[in-house]
């Protein structure tokens, strides 16, 4: 099976005033389905920028990204959005939930843009909430949830679309270590059970033991690509 995402020779530089700072330099990588890949590295090394380029949010200066058999940066604006709609999920550091909506509605909202029927998007939303262990919180609004619960709603929102790619940028940095662990476990399980390629940027060393694969970034390059022999069992696995 071809990899769900393949990128070659990505370069990106930002101009601030007249100074041009290279953020990514000739970076290449592939993601495998069903794997949780952690992208680790010091602040400012270009993790978020790489995520944005791979997910179709920020255009690279050079190089290409291939997903679903297409070079996504050759697509027009509209097609690129449709690519994200059908294949990409996002989890951000901030939870970015609408204050007025309850958990089911938060998760169902992006599904409405897929043109699903109400019964179907409701079913999917409830299943996704079940999967992140929030079945009981269905009707709570963000103001009534803890940070960890909110981030799990955000993960359910990203996963309910049944994407092939899931990008998470520092999903645990606003959470304490217990909640951080729950969140990374859920991401891990999502990768395994649904065959999603999950790429998660983080500088939280405690998460490293949970990954199938660790990419170490520095100064816009990937220095190290590790597959830890046996990834630590998820909380759920050990509970069984």
């Amino acid at each position: 099976m071809s990899s769900p995402l393949h990128a070659e020779g990505l370069s990106k530089a930002f101009l601030s005033g007249k100074v041009r700072t290279a953020v990514l330099e000739q970076l290449s990588l592939s993601l495998d389905p069903g794997e949780l890949t952690l992208l680790a590295g010091p602040s400012g090394c270009g993790k978020s920028t790489l995520l944005a380029i791979l997910s179709g949010l920020e255009r690279p200066d050079q190089g290409w990204v291939e997903a679903q058999g297409e070079r996504i940066w050759s697509l027009d604006h509209h097609a690129l959005r449709r690519f994200r709609l059908h294949h990409v999920g996002f989890v951000f550091q901030g939870f970015n939930l609408f204050a007025a909506l309850n958990a089911v509605e938060q998760v169902a909202l992006p599904l409405t843009y897929l043109g699903l029927k109400p019964a179907e998007y409701r079913r999917r939303a409830e299943a996704a909430l079940d999967e992140v262990g929030l079945a009981a919180c269905r009707h709570l609004r963000p103001a009534e949830m803890s940070g960890g619960e909110k981030q799990r709603v955000a993960i359910a929102r990203a996963m309910a679309k049944e994407p092939t790619l899931l990008f998470a940028d520092e999903p645990t940095s606003a959470l304490d270590s217990a909640n951080g662990r729950i969140v990374i476990d859920i991401l891990h399980r999502a990768a395994r059970q649904h065959g999603v390629a999950v790429l998660c940027a983080t500088h939280d060393p405690r998460l490293l033991s949970h990954a199938d694969r660790i990419l170490r970034m520095e100064d816009g390059r990937i220095l190290d690509d590790q597959h830890p022999a046996s990834p630590a069992p998820t909380a759920e696995d050990s509970a069984l």
Binding site: R84, V88, F90, F92, N96, L97, F98, A99, R157
Partner: peptide, 18 residues
Amino acid sequence: GSIAEYATLNALGASHAA
């Protein structure tokens, strides 16, 4: 006040028109 939420929806594939 909801700009991050709107941006998230857009990232997840909601069109500008929507």
